[in-house]
C-alpha cells in the first residue's frame, strides 16, 4: 500500500465531521433535556452508553476553547466541567442516522458491551479509576464509524471482501486501506485532542505491545473486546473472536476463577443494559427493517 494513498485516507479520516448516532438515544436525551428535573449527571449516564456522543463530549471538553487540552478522560468529569447548557447544545446539534441499519445498532451494542466488560475487568484488577478504562472501552471502535462515513466506497469494498473470503474486518481493512480501524480511531482521538490515556488504548486495542504508558488499559480493552465478541453481544463487524495477545494476557494474569467471576459479572451487567437497548430501539421510527 503506497504511502500516498495511506496519507489520503488519513487526511480524510482526520476530518471526520459527521458521526451520526441512534435516533432513539437522541430522542431520549432530548426529552430529558426538556424536563426541568433532569440533572446533568443523569444525562451523563445516558451519554456514557453511546460511544458517538461520548466521543463528541470528550472532544468538546478537550478543545482549546475550554482550556483543558488533552486532560479530560472521563465522561463524568466532562459533564461537570461543561455544564447543562453545553450538554444540551451537544444533543441539539447531534446528527442521527436518517436510515438505520442493523450493523449500526450492533456496533453500538458492541461498544456499550465493551465498556461494561472493561469496567468489570478493571475493577477486578483493582484499577484506581475504572471509569477511565470503560470510557476508552466505549470508544475503542469509533474508527469503524469514521471509515463508514468518510470512506463509504472503501467501506463497501471491505464488507464485500469479508463476505467473499470470510476474513475478519481488520484483515479486510488492512487489505483495502492499508490501515485498520484501531489506527483510524487513534488518529481521530489525536486530532480531537483527547488525552494520551484514551488515544493509546484505542490505537492499541488489537496489539497492546504497541502501547507505551497505557499497556494495562490497552490490555483490558483487548480482553474486554474479546469477551463481548465471545458472548455474541452486539456485532463488531465480523463474528470471530480475535487472537489473544500474549502481552495482554501477561498483564491481566487471570486465573480460571478470575475468568469465571468476570464472565458472571459481565453477563449480569449486560442485563441492565439490555433493558436500555430495548428502550432505545423502540424509540426509533426510522429503522430500515420495518
Amino acid at each position: 500500500m503506497e504511502d500516498a494513498r495511506r496519507q489520503e485516507f488519513r487526511t480524510a479520516l482526520r476530518q471526520t465531521k459527521n458521526l451520526p448516532t441512534l435516533p432513539g438515544i437522541v430522542a431520549k436525551l432530548s426529552r430529558m433535556a426538556e424536563d426541568p428535573d433532569t440533572t446533568t449527571e443523569q444525562m451523563g449516564k445516558v451519554i456514557s452508553q453511546d460511544y458517538i456522543l461520548a466521543a463528541k463530549l470528550l472532544k468538546l471538553v478537550n478543545s482549546a476553547f475550554y482550556g483543558f487540552p488533552q486532560r479530560i478522560s472521563s465522561i463524568s468529569s466532562a459533564i461537570i466541567l461543561l455544564g447543562f447548557n453545553v450538554v444540551k447544545s451537544l444533543i441539539i446539534s447531534a446528527s442521527i442516522f436518517e436510515v438505520m441499519e442493523d450493523q449500526d445498532v450492533e456496533l453500538w451494542q458492541h461498544s456499550l458491551g465493551c465498556a461494561v466488560a472493561c469496567n468489570v475487568i478493571a475493577s477486578r484488577l483493582g484499577v484506581k479509576d475504572p471509569e477511565e478504562v470503560s470510557t476508552a472501552g466505549l470508544i475503542h471502535d469509533i474508527g469503524k464509524m469514521a471509515i463508514k462515513m468518510e470512506l463509504p466506497e472503501e467501506y463497501g469494498m471491505i464488507n464485500r471482501l469479508m463476505q467473499e473470503r470470510g476474513v475478519s474486518m481488520r484483515q479486510a481493512e488492512l487489505e483495502v486501506l492499508g490501515l485498520d480501524h484501531a489506527e483510524a480511531g487513534g488518529w481521530l482521538a489525536k486530532g480531537w485532542n483527547l488525552p494520551a490515556k484514551l488515544i493509546e488504548p484505542v490505537t492499541c486495542h488489537h496489539d497492546p505491545r504497541k502501547a507505551h504508558d497505557a499497556q494495562l488499559t490497552s490490555s483490558i480493552i483487548h480482553f474486554g473486546d474479546i469477551m463481548i465478541r465471545a458472548l455474541g453481544y452486539g456485532h463488531a463487524g465480523d463474528n470471530k473472536v480475535p487472537m489473544l495477545s500474549k502481552r495482554a494476557w501477561e498483564f491481566l494474569n487471570f486465573s480460571p476463577e478470575d475468568i469465571d467471576e468476570v464472565l458472571e459479572l459481565v453477563e449480569e451487567k449486560l442485563w441492565d443494559v439490555k433493558g436500555f437497548s430495548l428502550e432505545v430501539k423502540a424509540d426509533d421510527s426510522t429503522h430500515a427493517g420495518d
Binding site: S168, R229, A230, G232, N239, K240, V241, P242, M243
Partner: peptide, 9 residues
C-alpha cells in the same frame, strides 16, 4: 455459533 466464533483461536 459459539464453535464458529472461536474457530480461529
Amino acid at each position: 455459533e459459539i464453535e464458529e466464533r472461536f474457530s480461529e483461536v
